[in-house]
């Protein structure tokens, strides 16, 4: 591993995530990197389940469970209250799913970004409403099966990272659980910054994507190496840095591990390959 992970024990064992859950692995590196002097904001999601069945908690830090549409607004309030009290050390972090970020929580996130509120927003993106039985969200990729897109989703995944870049906030990064050191480094970097910091973490859902219990990290790395989900950072909406990108691995290697893609025809696989190529090309144009 390229970066030496430094963990503080905030996240507890005994949580209710499924065996092998990538989201739980991501939470480990988010909260254990931020440390106990952090206030969490969690909307309804798997993260709410993982954070603990009341009255128990899996995180040794205060966690506020808010409504699905208002994570960023809640975090705004907490961050401003801390500032009003003269507390300049406690960090505020939102941990929300893609439903609570791309769809239902998007308005409050966009306006908080526009105001450059001082908190970290981590979207744990498993590309659907996996907690309620795997319905599609606007993060669900093109042609992926969900309970509400039985023949495959007809439209492409919303490019939230670029939408956040367009807000010109201090820091936008993509990360995924197959590279825990890269994820921990990005959280540690965000921790040292001010203003709205947004980290989009691809967190494969074993059940929702149709994966083996041990396949989370592997499929996450394939998403990167095929160019489907490159890992990069953008500072102040301008300065792009690529961390891990396409190695030219065919997209079919990524798709074939996942049952949500098993209905694809050869032509559809080629279509997704072409889309991945185009997206990867576009990103490369922004690097330099």
């Amino acid at each position: 591993m390229g970066y030496q992970i430094k963990e503080e024990k905030v996240f507890n064992s005994g949580h209710a995530a499924c065996p092998g859950c990538s989201e739980a692995l991501a939470i480990r590196y988010v909260v254990n990197t931020l440390g106990p002097d952090t206030i969490g904001v969690v909307p309804p999601s798997c993260i709410a389940i993982i954070s603990g069945p009341q009255p128990l908690s899996s995180m040794r830090m205060p966690v506020y469970q808010t409504t699905l549409e208002s994570s960023a607004a809640s975090a705004t309030g907490i961050a401003r209250a801390l500032k009003a009290k003269g507390n300049d050390h406690t960090k505020v972090v939102v941990m929300a799913g893609d439903g609570g970020t791309y769809d239902i929580g998007f308005q409050s996130l966009s306006s908080a970004a526009e105001r450059n509120e001082d908190f970290i927003y981590v979207c744990l993106d498993n590309e659907g409403y996996m907690n309620t039985g795997a319905q599609k969200s606007s993060s669900t990729p093109h042609l992926a099966y969900t309970a509400s897109t039985p023949a495959g989703k007809l439209t492409p995944k919303k490019n939230l990272a670029e939408i956040m870049v367009a807000h010109r906030i201090p820091y936008v990064a993509t990360a995924t659980t197959g590279y825990p050191d890269d994820l921990a480094r990005k959280v540690a970097k965000a921790k040292e910054m001010k203003g709205l910091r947004f980290i989009l973490v691809l967190a494969p859902c074993l059940d929702g994507w149709g994966l083996a219990d041990n396949a989370g990290p592997k499929v996450s790395r394939l998403a990167v190496e095929t160019g489907v989900f490159p890992l990069y950072e953008v500072e102040n909406g301008e300065r792009y840095t690529l961390n891990y990108g396409s190695k030219g691995t065919p997209v079919v290697q990524y798709l074939s591990l996942q049952k949500r893609y098993r209905h694809l025809s050869q032509a559809q696989v080629e279509e997704l390959q072409a889309e991945a190529n185009l997206n990867w090309q576009r990103l490369q144009g922004k690097l330099s």
Binding site: N12, S13, G14, P19, L56, S57
Partner: peptide, 16 residues
């Protein structure tokens, strides 16, 4: 405060 304890008192090992 709603939280009275931590999840590490639970035995998730029984799942496996």
């Amino acid at each position: 405060i709603w939280t009275t304890g931590w999840t590490d008192i639970l035995n998730t090992g029984t799942w496996r």
